[in-house]
Amino acid sequence: MAEATGIKDILKPENLVYNKTKIMTDNVLSYCPGCGHGTAHRILAEIIGEEGLQSQTIGVSPVGCSVLLYNYLDIDWQEAAHGRAPAVATAIKRLLPDKFVFTYQGDGDLAAIGTAETIHSCNRGENILIIFINNGIYGMTGGQMAPTTISGMKTSTSPYGRDVKLMGNPLKITDIVATLPGTYYVTRQSVHTPANVRKTKKAMRKAVQYQKLNKGTCFIEIVSNCPSGWKMTPVLSNKWMEENMFPFYPLGDIKVPEEKSAQ
């Protein structure tokens, strides 16, 4: 390694620009290679650290791939029954109004079994942050078709692609909650490229700051991949997501506070 001496000069603490945040524990993530969950966890951990909320944050973890989330972030946690995270978070926030309370849910948890809890907590305008990871299938149980599966998408229970006539239309839960009066900030982001990661981080920082105002529910959807469930390599799944998921789930802010005050 002829260039090793040059590299050693760069590897100094004062030159550090990026390091895994301390809020993330050293436990190895249980996710498949290339899964967007890990990136979303890291962004969330960075925001909690940068906003200085580590001791004031209570997370509610879901059922799904991210069920072991409480092992990865060094904050207070409560596990909820399948789909009931917004209801549990409602109780926590009402009993401890000074805390920052968020739920982290996948699409099987939030948009399938927990639709009622999601819609009603958003409609009540509970002061919680809901982070919603949408990969269009039930990832943990083997890639079955979910309510969020897009039209024509092949899953293990729709091997010829989702037929909308037979299996119904995919559910855009984020657009639904954006129409409810209780939500304050609703956005849809992704974490598959550096630019999108930065945008997601910005959106999450905004949502955390809006939570301090106690104006209503903040809802962040992260359109993510599922390389194992989609039967693709991580890079291919990201490409597939760009080509097929984003036309149906367009990225960007859906409801921003300025709009609400103008109405």
Binding site: D9, I10, L11, K12, N15, L16, V17, Y18, N19, K20, T21, M24, V28, L29, Y31, P33, G34, C35, G36, H37, G38, T39, R42, V191, H192, T193, P194, V197, R198
Partner: peptide, 20 residues
């Protein structure tokens, strides 16, 4: 060039970036 793009997208946070 120390842009940290790799570290940004790494799902497992395994990359540390230095720049000078």
């Amino acid at each position: 060039i120390g842009c940290a793009s790799c570290a940004m997208v790494c799902p497992d946070g395994v990359i540390t970036v230095y720049k000078t």
